[in-house]
Computed example of a mutant assay.
Amino acid sequence: MRKQLQRLLQERIELYTSDNQERSERKSHLKNELMRSRAAEIVRVNAAGKVHSRKKEDSDTILTYQVHLQYLLKQDDSFYIEEEMEERQARFRDGYLVDECELLPSFESEEEPLKCDTGAERLAYKYERMKAVQYAERWWNEFNPVYYKFTDDCTNYISQCLHAGGIPMWGAPNKSKGWWIRGKSWSYTWTTAHSLYYLLKAGTSIRTKQVESARELNLGDIICIDFEGDGRFDHNLIVTAKDQDGMPLVNAHTMNSRHRYWSYEDSTRYTPNIVYKFFKILDGG
């Protein structure tokens, strides 16, 4: 299986460095299109794989594995590294690959009301955005054992980053109120994208300023994404760097990513109806 995994990883590298517009995989096409629109290019791709599980189905062998992709990108005279994790599954029959695909995340782990109780007095805190960024960098591809581990972890990760930046929890033990986590219990706003969006929009306990463009954001600020444009927000990102043009590069969980371009145009979830909301995180009090 080691040789088979090495072959699959080589195919990943060839896919993302190819400029072939006839390729059937939408994600690689989107990645190449995004690079062109940014006047950037993929100089090199490294791929490392780790097998999660192996099972037999009749004469087939099903291999579930994780790929850690590192892109060396060149934009004008600057270079930087973007990192991304993919969960994939391959089917082998008589030693030959017959099918291979990406296992797409759902981005949400539980249902929550469309609106939570975001009412609170203004909390006093100083937002130390570099501590939030340092936390985001440290845990972008791992789970902090201090917190409960979620399968769909995007909002839990962002909440942890904000808390590391000095924003206090409040509202426990009411799941529909406040912003908090304790052991195996938590508020909707801590763990679900749509509820965190409402909390940031309210700008009370977490003081925010909503701005019109990604360019206005600084390190430690937050982007909320509604992929379908249906009014329900699906994903959250934290700004951890800027590119040569001053545009945000972001970290995220669920599909773990580091220094990814903010617009997510290379995501398989991307649609022409996508909606972004941009929040500057301010000091409280």
Rank of each mutant, 00 (worst) to 15 (best):
E100R: 02
S257A: 13
E84T: 07
E228V: 03
E14Y: 03
Q10A: 12
Q70V: 14
S257M: 08
V67W: 01
Y261I: 12
L34T: 13
S263G: 03
A164H: 08
K115C: 01
S28Y: 11
K277R: 15
W179C: 00
S205C: 10
C161H: 03
K31P: 00
K55F: 08
R122N: 01
F150I: 02
I13R: 12
N156D: 07
H259N: 15
Y125I: 00
K175Y: 03
K177R: 15
E33H: 09
E212N: 13
I181Q: 15
S18V: 06
L196M: 13
F233M: 11
P145I: 07
A48R: 13
R258H: 14
E82W: 02
L8G: 05
I274T: 14
P113G: 09
M1F: 11
K175H: 04
V45C: 05
I238L: 11
Y96S: 14
Y157V: 04
A120Q: 06
R36G: 07
H163W: 10
N218T: 07
Q160G: 09
M130Y: 01
V43L: 12
N46D: 14
S18N: 04
V239K: 01
L103K: 15
N251V: 06
D94H: 13
N273G: 06
G95R: 07
I274E: 02
R38D: 09
H194G: 04
L249Y: 12
L34P: 00
L282P: 03
E82C: 06
D283G: 11
H52V: 03
T204V: 10
Y198H: 15
E216G: 06
F143A: 12
L34Q: 14
D283R: 05
S59T: 10
V67T: 15
F278C: 00
E212P: 00
E110S: 09
V98P: 04
R122T: 02
S28A: 15
G220P: 04
M255R: 12
Y276A: 12
V51G: 02
S24L: 13
R44L: 09
Q70H: 13
T254S: 08
G166A: 07
G229V: 09
Y16C: 06
Q4A: 15
E142F: 04
W180D: 01
E22I: 00
D77I: 06
G49K: 08
L114A: 07
T208N: 06
R215Q: 14
K27Q: 15
A136H: 08
D245G: 04
S205T: 02
L282V: 08
A252H: 00
N156L: 03
D283P: 05
E83F: 00
D283K: 07
T151C: 00
A172G: 05
Y71V: 10
D230E: 11
E216P: 05
C154T: 07
M1L: 14
S37Y: 10
S53E: 09
R129Q: 00
L114P: 06
P272I: 03
Y65A: 03
L217R: 04
L8M: 14
R26A: 10
Y197N: 09
E110F: 00
E212F: 07
V43C: 11
N236I: 02
L200Q: 07
Y96K: 14
Y157A: 10
S24C: 01
